[in-house]
């Protein structure tokens, strides 16, 4: 996890991990989820869905923090995230490349 400023209690913060589900055939390829994912975890897939759009694909599954933003911005009900049962352990936030 990257920080603008490392919080003093970074070693105790539990960062949640998300699993992204994509209902590909609902997607109309607007790219809003890709553009606004705070972790840049998504990208356009090279494949086409039934309607001829490129749905998103998860390129960095370990980066998803289950913030649900992709889910709430999607106009098509085509993407959502759920909490990964195996959440990162306290302290992991600090050991990652903090800036």
């Amino acid at each position: 996890m990257e920080f603008w400023r490392v919080p003093l209690d970074a070693d105790t913060i539990q960062v949640s991990l998300g699993i992204v589900h994509i209902l590909e055939d609902r997607c109309k390829g607007c790219g809003y989820c890709i553009e606004y994912c705070p972790k840049q975890a998504l990208e356009f897939s090279t494949k086409f869905n039934q309607k001829g759009y490129h749905p998103p694909v998860v390129i960095k599954p370990d980066e998803c923090v289950n913030c649900h933003y992709c889910e709430i911005i999607c106009p098509e009900f085509a993407i959502f995230s759920v909490e990964c049962p195996q959440t990162t352990k306290p302290g992991q936030a600090e050991t990652n490349h903090a800036i």
Partner: peptide
Amino acid sequence: HPLDDLIRTDRIPHIWCPGCGIGT
């Protein structure tokens, strides 16, 4: 989808154009 219970899913995809904000 977590909102599927409030949507008539048989009518999805809806008519709104790609990038239209109404769906959001």
